[in-house]
Amino acid sequence: MNRLPTGMYLPGDSPIHRLDPRVKLLGLFISVTAIILVRPLIGYGVILAFLAFTVALSGLSIKIALNSVQRLSWFFLVIFMMNTFFYSPENAWFSWWIFTPSSAGLMQGVDVVLRVVFALVASNVITSSTAPMEITNALEALISPFKLVGIPAEQIAMILSIAIQFIPTFSEETEMIRKAQTARGARFDSKKLTEKAAAVLPLVVPIFLSAFKRADELSIAMEARGYRSASGRTRKKFAPLKVDDYFALLIVIAICILQILIR
């Protein structure tokens, strides 16, 4: 597959690139909250304007910003269709078999898809403008208060960042396994309860085996390079926040509060 991996870091020198990674991560978290909270149409407008502004400022192309949206487009289609056709039998345009398409469902479908796309664009901008190491460091810094109650923040940050890196690979592998078993004559659905588990074994067992094989290889590689555990690692010291950082935080917080006020 000759496509860009999702969230690949693209070095640059835009105002977004220069923001403190902790601010970017926190900002992402707050913007996603705002996206979840959106209610009226004008709210969508505000989010859209904000995202467009951020993308423009980051100097990343629209294509990069919409990167993983492409990968998920079939999923969006499913979500959209499901909502349109099954949302509610009330006020349906017509009713045929189990399908009850309605304008309320259509709106709901648009709504869900739009929110996910917004959230994806927001996280694409952050992951494309921030080196993976920086993200991990920032995550570590942000969850380090948890260490006071005995939670190993660095290790959790390491686990999360590895997990995120594995997602696209596993997606492709899973699709391959599904096709290979289908070609061998597998049927993943069975009417009988007793056979339902057996029906998905040809799918699930290979997925886990290939995933654990990767885990095995990676852990051998890491241990061979002398990686014992995250706790011994020296934490990166962050420079104090700059004016830009405070300003960026202020904007996202304002947008989030606005979404709550106009709900």
Binding site: E173, M176, I177, K179, A180, Q181, A183, R184, G185, L201, P202, V205, P206, L209, S210
Partner: peptide, 15 residues
């Protein structure tokens, strides 16, 4: 039955 397909790294399909 008529058409068999062996994908790259077919060993992942074992279960």
């Amino acid at each position: 039955r008529k058409v068999g397909i062996v994908f790259q790294y077919p060993e992942v399909q074992l279960f």
